[in-house]
Design a protein around this nucleic acid. Structure first.
Length: 319
DNA sequence: ACCTGTCAAGTCTGG
DNA sequence: CCAGACTTGACAGGT
């Protein structure tokens, strides 16, 4: 099986390469006129896109083929009281460059709207804001040349003391989404509320792929083993053009088990690989270590001690 | 140049 | 019913 590795949002190898430069709403509102506001938003977005390309180029140089773009590419993009500007049109050159580079290198990208996007909420304004956020992410992925293979990872959301009801609300909100957005959404088990088997059940019902987060499963177990879950999780990807995706990280410590450690424990990861090997299916691993690409490269280095792992490229292995 | 409190957004818990 | 935690990189204001 082939396993590819990726990292999230920013590179710690590169100097001054944040793709998430921003401005606070307070300071945005302090600017004197719309022209300077727009100028500022455009400037920041342009820098973020340039840095995204730098990160992609560096990832490619390291043999990394999987990457999660930041949700903060366009500052204040879905804020209600901020100018609605055509960022994909005005910065089409920058988007075009990224699109071309992704085509050239075959790097897989995805996005993970943060926890303010909640499809279980009963509050109308929360759903509206969530939809705005999904549309924003869809616009970005489309401008980067991605069709339905450019995925948006979501958690199921809140529980509000009644999981069944919350899941029903999720279903009805999900079914009302535009088709192109539905096709992008994939669901991930979280570390507190919705376990892997609960998430899997919903994914099976809605025919959407599931991302299995190994760390979250450790924090929020459901009695099922990784081996038991992995087969059915991978099956949710059956009709997809890209292989299943796994999230992996190591707990920071015994006492703060839910936080991400700086690096990934390679022995624990190897044990996970052994379990996945039984299915013998290709998949991608998104590492969520604090040290980002540096942690990814360190893991690759550590894995070289295991003689049964064959390295194809920097962060692509055969096992 | 460096340090620290604050930030658009939601939910949950505890007081 | 409200404040604070959660979590996290980056801004912004102060030193």
């Amino acid at each position: 099986m082939i396993v590819r590795f990726g990292f999230v949002a920013m590179s710690l190898e590169l100097y001054n390469a944040s793709p998430s430069k921003t401005i606070s709403y307070t300071n945005y509102a302090k600017l004197t006129d719309d022209r300077s506001r727009l100028f500022r938003l455009k400037k920041l977005t342009e820098e973020n896109l340039n840095n995204t390309l730098r990160i992609l180029i560096n990832a490619h140089a390291n043999g990394i083929e999987v990457y999660r773009i930041t949700s903060k590419l366009v500052p204040l993009s879905t804020h209600k009281d901020v100018i609605d500007w055509d960022y994909t049109g005005e910065l089409s050159q920058q988007f075009q460059k990224i699109k071309q580079y992704l085509e050239e290198t075959g790097i897989r990208i995805s996005a993970h709207p943060d926890h303010f996007t909640v499809l279980t909420s009963q509050r109308e304004e929360v759903i509206e804001a969530s939809i705005r956020d999904l549309i924003y992410h869809d616009r970005i992925l489309s401008a980067m040349g991605k069709g339905s293979e450019g995925k948006l990872v979501l958690h199921i959301g809140g529980v509000y003391k009644d999981k069944e009801k919350a899941i029903d609300i999720f279903k009805s909100n999900f079914s009302a989404l535009p088709q192109n957005i539905k096709e992008r959404i994939i669901l991930e088990n979280d570390d507190k509320s919705y376990t892997a088997s609960e998430t899997l059940k919903l994914c099976q019902e809605l025919h959407i792929p599931m991302v299995f987060d190994v760390h979250h499963h450790l924090c929020n177990p459901d009695g099922l083993t990784v081996e038991e879950l992995l087969g059915p999780v991978f099956n949710t990807w059956e009709n997809q053009s890209l292989p299943p995706k796994i999230h992996y990280s190591t707990p920071k410590s015994q006492s703060s088990i839910r936080s991400h450690a700086d690096y990934v424990d390679s022995e624990a990861f190897y044990q996970f690989l052994l379990k996945a090997k039984k299915l013998d299916k290709n998949f991608d691993v998104m590492l969520e270590a604090k040290n980002k690409d540096v942690a990814l490269l360190k893991l690759m280095d550590d894995l070289k001690h295991y003689k049964d792992i064959k390295f194809i490229r920097g962060a692509v292995i055969e096992f």
